[in-house]
């Protein structure tokens, strides 16, 4: 890897960590109701409450908070489903796109409501502008705000004592959207427009090509089926085209929140690899920063709200260590030459003329480092946007994004959900430490007892059940196998990646798997639902249980949770759970594929 690659990674991390404190401090003030935005926009905020018939002073028990979250998300899912099914009857559809099929509409509605943003469809060929804006972009805001609201409720569980309530879900949701997500998105969208990201209601443009393009395409019979010759091979015909349709639309406003809200659903099918969604190196840097910005800053917010910023820094340190370590696995893996191509004498060395390494599926303007760094960031966070095709990564390079998702999306993770997942791992870590020394574990002054650990067990066990169970079922069912076009280990990796993505609410796709089928749309949709809400509910239950407890002063037997020792213990807990659960499955996919690739060099 060239030294410029190290600099790019270093600059990215420095800017990210430098922004964590100011933004984290601001978000803490928002949730405390003390920011300048709270004061200036209070009339607007109160007007929303009056319109919705909400009393913002009414505190909620954890069960009320959870039910409000469920009802709100049910309504969001139903709305996005209806918009897709009725889009042919609704305005802002200049391409006259038809209704989305029921299974795809279900998958997409669930995907955007759960902050997963798995996309079985191609945006520019499926969704009207109205569906993209009113359905998908709105859910980008609201699903992100839901995750952050659950996190704030959990933090109140730690900071309150002998309390029955966790705050008001509607207030947390409104403040997150109004004071955090909207301002950041407006600023980022405007900067992206300045860089060339498209934002328009105009219909798609048809342009003349500077050179006619000729290609072969399958010939269709009168019945619309592909004609085949006597040998059973498809009959093709030569086609020459002189024009191209360029999809446009209100992309920048969606791209900004899809990155900031760790949603990841692209306006266009190829997501941020599309030149109108991510045109320049600067737009690429800003979009990459936006992926991890709020998850990183929320660690500091957590520290402020529990009254000890060292606790937030410790968690951010644990996340950063894992992220950096895995960046330095993926990027060098992609920078290495492909042995198959090397055997053919292809020059794959990095030079002034080329990025070198494995450039299949990567944009020339981003190169190896920015593709690998994005892949790790987007799967460390539960973002899932891509600027390169993960299916074309080397086996090791592709295994890391997959494993990051399988770790439970706690290395930065989704906005809100990543940190509450990591805090659950912290509870398990102090529990393990407590077992070692025979003392009741404590975290932030709250005793961690059997109930919290039972809830933590649900949080940790649900995703592996969805990922491994879903993969196993898909590979046994004919409908599941019918979508796998790559034979052997790589085909297995594609299915495992799809369920790892849905079962952890990431949303990125390995590609290669034909997932827009009734089977995958349904199975992945159900996986996304359980992965989101059956983790958020036990987290809120933990919050409710902790809020009711008194705060125990730290004593000589208390394990300090802001030290490097605890950071190491936390990292060990996350990695061990992730490794023990998923290494057998990874061994069948990317590990086998890597060994097959290395065997090329053997005599």
């Amino acid at each position: 890897m060239a030294h410029t690659g190290y600099w790019q990674i270093a600059i990215y991390l420095i800017v990210l960590l430098a922004l964590a404190k100011p933004l984290g401090g601001y978000m803490a003030r928002v949730y405390q109701g003390e920011s300048a935005a709270n004061r200036w926009l209070a009339p607007l905020e109160n007007r929303f409450y009056r319109l919705a018939g909400v009393d913002p002073r009414q505190e909620m028990h954890w069960t009320g908070y959870a039910v409000a979250m469920l009802i709100f998300n049910l309504l969001g899912t139903a709305t996005v489903y209806a918009l897709q099914r009725l889009q042919h009857l609704l305005p802002l559809n200049p391409q006259v796109l038809g209704a989305v099929t029921p299974d795809s509409a279900f998958n997409t509605a669930v995907s955007f409501a759960t902050n997963t943003n798995w996309q079985g469809y191609g945006g520019e060929t499926t969704m009207s502008y109205l569906t993209q804006m009113l359905g998908l972009t709105v859910q980008n805001f609201l699903s992100a705000a839901t995750g952050m609201a659950v996190l704030v409720a959990l933090i109140r569980g730690f900071s309150r004592r002998n309390a029955d309530t966790l705050g008001n879900f509607w207030v947390d949701l409104t403040r997150t959207t109004l004071y955090i997500l909207l301002p950041l998105s407006v600023v980022l969208a405007l900067v992206l427009v300045g860089q060339g990201v498209v934002q328009t209601f105009s219909p798609y443009r048809t342009v003349q090509l500077t050179q006619p393009v000729g290609y072969e395409q399958p010939k269709l019979g009168v019945d619309g089926q592909v004609l085949k010759d006597t040998a059973g091979k498809p009959v093709t015909e030569a086609v020459v085209t002189k024009e191209q349709t360029i999809a446009v639309g209100p992309a920048a406003s969606q791209v900004a929140i899809k990155q900031l809200g760790t949603n990841g659903g692209g306006f266009f099918n190829v997501n941020s690899a599309h030149p109108l969604e991510n045109p320049t190196p600067l737009s690429n840097l800003l979009e990459m920063l936006a992926i991890l910005l709020i998850p990183a800053a929320l660690c500091y917010t957590f520290g402020v709200l529990v009254g000890d910023t060292r606790q937030g820094w410790a968690i951010l340190a644990a996340m950063t260590v894992v992220l950096v370590a895995l960046v330095f696995v993926t990027v060098p893996a992609e920078q290495q030459s492909n042995p198959v191509l090397a055997a053919l004498g292809v020059d794959q060395a990095a030079s002034a003329q080329q990025a070198g390494g494995n450039m299949e599926g990567k944009e020339t303007r981003f190169g190896i480092v920015n593709s690998g760094l994005w892949a790790v960031a987007t799967t460390a966070a539960s973002n899932g946007s891509v600027n390169s095709m993960h299916d074309s990564f080397t086996p090791v390079g592709g295994m890391i994004p997959m494993w990051l998702m399988q770790l439970g999306e706690v290395i930065f993770g989704g906005v809100g959900s990543g940190l509450y997942g990591m805090i659950v791992f912290a509870l398990v870590a102090v529990f393990v430490a407590g077992l070692m020394i025979g003392r009741t574990p404590e975290y932030l002054g709250k005793k961690i007892e059997a109930y919290e650990i039972k809830m933590a067990a649900i949080v940790i066990l649900v995703p592996p059940l969805l990922v491994l169970g879903g993969t196993a079922l898909a590979l046994m069912a004919d409908a599941g196998k019918a979508s796998v076009f790559n034979p052997g280990a790589h085909g297995f990796s594609e299915v495992l990646y799809a369920f790892s993505s849905a079962g952890n609410n990431n949303g990125s796709a390995f590609g290669g798997l034909s997932a827009n089928t009734p089977y995958y749309n349904s199975m992945l949709g159900v996986a996304m639902l359980f992965a989101r809400y059956w983790l958020a509910i036990p987290v809120l239950a933990i919050a409710g249980s902790l809020a009711a407890k008194k705060i125990v002063p730290a004593g000589p037997g208390t394990l300090p949770t802001h030290t490097p020792l605890f950071v190491a213990l936390l990292i060990g807990t996350v990695l061990l759970v992730g490794a023990l659960t998923f290494i057998p499955a990874l061994a069948l996919g990317p590990v086998v594929e890597h060994l097959q690739l290395m065997a090329i060099n053997q005599p």
């Binding site: 069960t63 998300n73 209806a82 029921p102 279900f106 509605a109 159900v526 409710g544």
Partner: peptide, 30 residues
């Protein structure tokens, strides 16, 4: 409009409300 998937979604959220109830019962009994 096809209501199969809307009903499936509704069933899931009803089940999730059951999880909320179950978690609270467990909390009160522990």
């Amino acid at each position: 409009m096809d209501f199969t998937f809307l009903i499936l979604t509704l069933l899931f959220f009803a089940l999730s409300a059951g999880l909320v109830y179950g978690c609270e019962r467990l909390r009160r009994s522990s």
